[in-house]
């Protein structure tokens, strides 16, 4: 039990727990919401897959600061996104735009569902064909016999 207490002490002293978190203060709660949403949906350009809220990379901190500044200046959510896209490209926003490059990404699921629908309809048809009149008559007869 003692070693456990010691371990807890060491853990609580580790620098990661004392890391300085930058505090962004807003006058309006609406602005804070926009900031929150933006830092979760803007992608860190340095990291492979992290939003700027999660990332500690220098560039993410700079971007967060910039987002804060812009919101304070009265930029709308879309204006901030455009500002970042102008600099870091479409990559920076987690929602990809519809363009020739991303067409497959957007249309893929629709195409796939269409394909499945076609296959289902065709199978249904062949199954219906399978019940021909002779078979039905036979079945009727069996039912009659059972009575």
């Amino acid at each position: 039990m003692r070693w456990y207490a010691g371990l807890l002490l060491i853990l609580s002293l580790s620098p990661s727990l004392q890391a300085v978190q930058e505090v962004y203060e807003f006058d309006k709660p609406a602005q804070r919401e926009v900031f929150q949403r933006l830092s979760e949906n803007l992608r860190c350009p340095k990291c492979q897959n992290q939003n700027i809220a999660d990332s500690n990379a220098l560039v993410s901190q700079d971007m967060k600061r910039k987002v804060y500044e812009l919101i304070k200046k009265g930029y709308s959510e879309q204006q901030v996104i455009d500002y970042m896209k102008q600099r870091y490209g479409d990559f920076v926003y987690y929602q990809p735009p519809l363009n020739p490059l991303t067409l497959m990404l957007w249309m893929g699921p629709v195409l796939f569902m269409g394909l499945v629908l076609v296959v289902l309809i065709r199978r249904r048809k062949t199954q219906e064909k399978g019940f021909d009149k002779a078979m039905l008559a036979k079945a009727e007869k069996w039912l009659e016999d059972d009575k």
Binding site: V59, R87, G89
Partner: peptide, 12 residues
């Protein structure tokens, strides 16, 4: 302040 870096889209 890394302002030009941000405007240039520098990631690191």
């Amino acid at each position: 302040q890394r302002s030009l870096s941000l405007d240039l889209g520098v990631s690191g």
